[in-house]
Structures are given as structure tokens and as C-alpha cells.
Design a binder for these strands. Structure first.
Lengths: 226, 226
DNA sequence: TTAATATTGTTAAAAAAATAACATAACCTA
DNA sequence: TAGGTTATGTTATTTTTTTAACAATATTAA
């Protein structure tokens, strides 16, 4: 595989969802234009960086006005491919899977949630946000009859690799993974790890750093070396 | 404010949760040592980068063996401050808030979930994973009587800023934010945005890139410029 | 005991990313 | 219409990050 010729740098990709979010919020304001300076205030990125990021995709701004909020939002939507319709299923109807079923973010990003699967007989036929939970034993049959683009994986860690293998065998090309175990997938499968506890990790680290700085302690942790 | 003198570079911080996760998973393997090359296979980072990251904190490896898995895991725990106990509350007992109440990741990271708050009278007194939901009108009183380190915010966007202001006024120093609206907080508050749909955004973009590459289309999106 | 092997920690080099600077152009006011 | 202002898009510079290379050292095998 390897990168495509005109692959967008990962670092820019990582900022696009942030631009998207703020432009979406700006839609409901009365403003028509937004400057790179204002976007800098909102996002925390420098205005220079924002102009550079946007210029990677084209020329969107208007001199002495800034960026047309609606137009730029539409462009970001196109860049991210939100104008293309994609079908999503959820595997694992536990607490997290059910919460994802109620997530309001799908439609605006071009996703449609079409089914939820679980192993637990008690959950099967239960209707969550208008979607019926079905037995995971139907998975292959369902995927044969429905073109599914992305599978969200919210099963217990122990089941994750097996389900993944089944998904891949059935032709799924993109997995949104909430299990915290390392999954093996072929190189042409898009695997996006959603580390749900990442924010908590960072907060713990920052609070720890603050504490260390206040104590004045500068510990070296070295160990192991003989 | 500004960065502290010995602040860990953000780019390294962003990789620590990944190291943590893989080292945790390695605990349950029979292996005792892991090399930077093996960690590279697991994480997708280069072995050189991994050695460099770890050397930022100290000297952990053993020549010709690699890293003692247990020891390194402990060190990462210390770096991230997981050995310090932190108290967590959840504001907003909707589907996501309830799912977070069942999250199993707290204890291993030093967090203890001690309460859940909601406005909806129908939810109050409901017990979720042994934690009773209480009225958000008790928030200030509760925070006076309990030293809370982090508040997870899963309220509707419209309520987010108001609740945030109350949390800050009551002395909360760290917020784990799941609302997708921009929050204003004083500079000394740690605010961690958990964009729940980030993975979906990236998957959409990658599938779109793949499609564009296959089509051979190299569109320039420019607009707006007069 | 010696030679071959493995893997670290670190230095040097290369690549990527961010910032700063500014020429350019559009807008506004008088 | 002229002069001042604003904010882009881009170039040049600086900084950060990554990769590559390798000396040092522990281990293993002969």
C-alpha cells in the first residue's frame, strides 16, 4: 500500500475535524465571515497555521474580510467527504454501543446507521433509537445484502479479533474501533482507534506535571539498565 | 501561564496513551521483555522514535534484551500520574453519560467515579453501576464537601457553557468535555476535548481520498476569492 | 575465552511543521 | 480618488520532529 501521491499530511487531517466543528458552530451565529485570527482564538492554532492549512486545499478567503463561513464549511465538508453517503453498523450493543446508537453526529457527516448486532439473546430484537438489534450470527448474511462502509466495534476485548476477522472476510473496508486491544487487519483496511480514555490520560498527566512543577521535583525515572 | 520549563512535548504526550495501552495488553502475555522493534510493530511508530520517546524520561532498557514489560508499564503509569488518586464526576446522565458510568478504564488510571448529576427529575435517584444520579442543583454543595479533580461533561451543547461556569466557580480544575461546542474557561483550567466523532471524520476523509485517487481527479476547490 | 549477535541510548542528518514576515489586493473613509 | 486599513496567500526562516546511523554493551554460541 503506502501513502498516495497527494495524501493530505496527517497533521492537517488531525486539525480538520476541529475546523469542521467550529465552522459548524459558527453557522448558527449571525456572522457571515470569519478571519484566520478569529479562528485562531477559537481553535488555539495560530492564524498563520490556519491560513497555511486552508491554502493546502485551495483559495477560500476574501482579502480584508476573511473566510465566508458558509462557503468554507461546505468546502470542509467536501474535503472530508461528508457529501458522500456511507452506511454504518455497530457491533456490540453494550452500554457504549447503545450510546453510539443515539449519537447525533452521523447524518451531518454523511453516515447512516443501519443496524446493530449483539451476541446476547436478551438484547436481540430490542429497538434502540429506531434500530433493531439483531444477532451477530446474521452478520455475514446482512453484509452480503447490504453495502456497509464502516463497522463500529464496541464488543469486549476478548471477542474483538474474531469479529474483526469476520468483518474483513465479509468485505468491510473501514473499522471504527472502541475496543482497547490491538487488532490485526490487512493493510488495505482503514482502522481508526478511538481511545475513549485518551482525554483522561492526558488530564492525569497534566495534573501530575503541575504537581511536579510545584514541588520542584525533577525526578529521573531510570531503571532496568544493568 | 504558558508552558512549564520541563513540559513534555505535546507530540510525546499524544503517544503515551498508546504505549500505555500496548504495555497493558502485553502484561497478560507470557513475554517478559519487549524490544523497540516489537513495539514499533504494535504501535506503528518507528523503533527509533520509540527509543527516543522513552529516553526522554530516563533509561529503561536492557541492551540486547529490550524493555522489561512490567517495569516499563509501571514507569509509564508513574509518568502519567496514574499512581495518584483522582476523583471524577459526570455531569449529564444521558446515553453517553450513562455509558461513561460503566467505563472500566477509571481504576487502572487512578480515577474514581464518585457521582453523576442530571437535570431531568426522571433520572434522579436512578442508580447506574452503583452510582446514584443526583440533581445538578446539588452540584455546588457536593463540590464543597468533596474534593473533585475532574468533571466529565456530557450535557447538551446548549447547557455546556453555563455548567462549565458553575464548575469553574466551584473550583474544578480539569474538564473532560464531550459536548461539541467551544467552551470558554480561564487559562489555568485543563480542558480536554473528546471529539467522539473524530474517528468517523477521519474514516470518511480517508475513504474519500481513496476514491479521488482511483478517479484520478485532482480537484482544486478554490472559491470565494474575488 | 572469543567472536557473533542483538538491542539499547544517543548523536548527527534529514524532513516536516510552525512561525514570522510581507507583498498583494480588497475594502473603507473622507 | 487617494490614503489608510485589513486580512489573505505565500515565501523565507526557524523550530520541531523524525529518521538514520552507530558506538557501546550485554548476551549467546562456539
Amino acid at each position: 500500500m503506502g501513502k498516495e501521491l497527494n495524501a493530505i499530511p496527517d497533521i492537517i487531517i488531525s486539525r480538520l475535524p476541529v475546523y469542521y466543528q467550529h465552522l459548524k458552530n459558527l453557522q448558527s451565529s449571525s456572522k457571515e465571515y470569519v478571519s484566520s485570527e478569529e479562528l485562531a482564538d477559537l481553535t488555539g492554532f495560530s492564524s498563520s497555521l490556519i491560513r497555511k492549512d486552508l491554502s493546502y486545499f485551495g483559495t477560500f478567503g476574501r482579502k480584508s474580510y476573511g473566510y465566508d463561513i458558509y462557503c468554507l464549511f461546505q468546502q470542509i465538508n467536501i474535503i472530508m467527504g461528508f457529501n458522500y453517503k456511507k452506511k454504518l453498523i455497530i457491533i456490540g450493543a453494550g452500554h457504549l454501543g447503545q450510546a453510539l446508537a443515539y449519537n447525533k453526529g452521523y447524518n451531518e457527516r454523511g453516515y447512516q446507521l443501519i443496524s446493530i448486532f449483539d451476541k446476547n439473546p436478551k438484547l436481540i430484537d430490542l429497538v434502540i433509537n429506531d434500530i433493531e438489534i439483531q444477532s451477530v450470527s446474521n452478520l455475514e448474511r446482512f453484509l452480503e445484502n447490504n453495502k456497509v462502509d464502516v463497522a463500529a466495534l464496541t464488543v469486549p476485548g476478548a471477542a474483538a479479533q474474531k469479529i474483526t476477522d469476520r468483518l474483513v472476510a465479509a468485505g468491510i473496508k473501514a473499522i471504527w474501533d472502541f475496543t482497547e486491544v490491538p487488532l490485526k487487519v490487512p493493510e488495505d483496511i482503514f482502522l481508526e482507534e478511538q481511545l475513549i480514555n485518551e482525554g483522561l490520560c492526558k488530564l492525569s498527566l497534566k495534573m501530575n506535571q503541575k504537581r511536579l512543577n510545584q514541588d520542584g521535583t525533577t525526578e529521573d525515572l531510570s531503571c532496568g539498565q544493568k
